[in-house]
Design a protein around this nucleic acid. Structure first.
Lengths: 181, 181
DNA sequence: TCCTTTGCTTGACACCGTGTAAAGTTGACA
DNA sequence: TGTCAACTTTACACGGTGTCAAGCAAAGGA
């Protein structure tokens, strides 16, 4: 899993074959299949492993503790800064989605978890009556979740050349401007 | 190209093979290669063909004629309503990006054209001094372009279940709230 | 010491989809 | 009658995933 992680990180998630991973791990290609039945399984296991190492729960603690607009800000920051860490695996999983049912499900699950984070931030906003009137909590969550998607991050970071700091700052402003009333 | 179009439209852009297209067109798989050297070439030709049929220039005329905030609104509407028409081909091209250089370039080109549309809308906003002070025209264009990306449309339309009307309306509000001062 | 288990190795192969190649058919047109 | 263009069928190369089988080496218990 560490080999997978390394390769995906440096390649940005594309063009990493099972044989590359095996070579990097110092074992034969077949040996990889002794541990992980499919490529999708290897990727999702690696993702879980990365969550462990990065202590995702810990890094989201600050945002969970806050409330109202501050909570939104902290959530955007926390998740926004987590994206680059998982980006390699994410990209690989996203690429497999079209052809591989298991990959689609795995990535869908992870994104559903992110959606819960978004819903919680929106909930906090509603609690202090600062959610713009035009939104239901549902649609606001949809919007926040889409804005904070990995795809959008990729576009802004790589195609537009934004720095990570810029990204977080501007996403905080964007979400505040569009959701907070 | 019509066969390609049909298939990609009904499949949402995934899982359409050269042989499927050939069958749908009523010719052999090899005959397809007599007309289009590669899959990427077929897809991009189809995209151009669709632009022709849809008269993309015509449908953008209204937004080009307007100015200021109205121009932004009309641009969001025009492009937002064009996305579903090209979505099938777009998805297929996006999926090929990781492995196929030509597909990446073709899709990049098309998106660059969209970016010009975004830049023009931002320019119109600047001309009447309504672009929020926090933005350069560059970063505002980046943001508008990313918000109006096909990926974001997919997410809102399919994963969040928004209707096309909702999508356009809410994107108009979002862009106004976040860009117009 | 022998036997078994565990974790690997090598090598071969099936499947899929893209793309290439070659030889043959059909119909239009000069 | 001959030629050309569009197409057909058949076959194959390639790359990547996943499967299968036989074998090997080290650890550990009886």
């Amino acid at each position: 899993m560490r080999a997978t992680w390394n390769l995906l990180e440096k390649s940005g998630g594309a063009g990493v074959r099972m044989s590359d991973i095996a070579k990097a791990a110092g074992i034969s290609r077949q040996a990889v299949y002794l541990h992980f039945p499919t490529r999708a399984e290897l990727l999702t296991s690696t993702a879980r492993y990365m969550d462990d190492v990065h202590d995702i729960d810990g890094s989201l603690a600050a945002s969970r503790a806050a409330s109202g607009v501050e909570r939104l800000d902290l959530w955007v920051e926390a998740w926004g800064n987590y994206i680059p860490k998982i980006h390699g695996v994410g990209r690989a999983l996203i690429a497999m989605r079209d052809t591989d049912e298991a990959a689609a499900a795995a990535w869908g699950d992870r994104m559903q978890a992110v959606r819960h984070g978004c819903a919680a931030a929106i909930g906090a906003l509603e609690k202090v009556d600062r959610l713009k009137a035009e939104f239901t909590s549902e649609t606001a969550t949809d919007l926040l979740w889409s804005i904070l998607s990995v795809e959008m991050w990729e576009k802004l970071r790589f195609e537009c050349g934004w720095s990570q700091e810029d990204y977080v700052l501007r996403m905080q402003r964007l979400t505040r401007n569009s959701l907070v009333g």
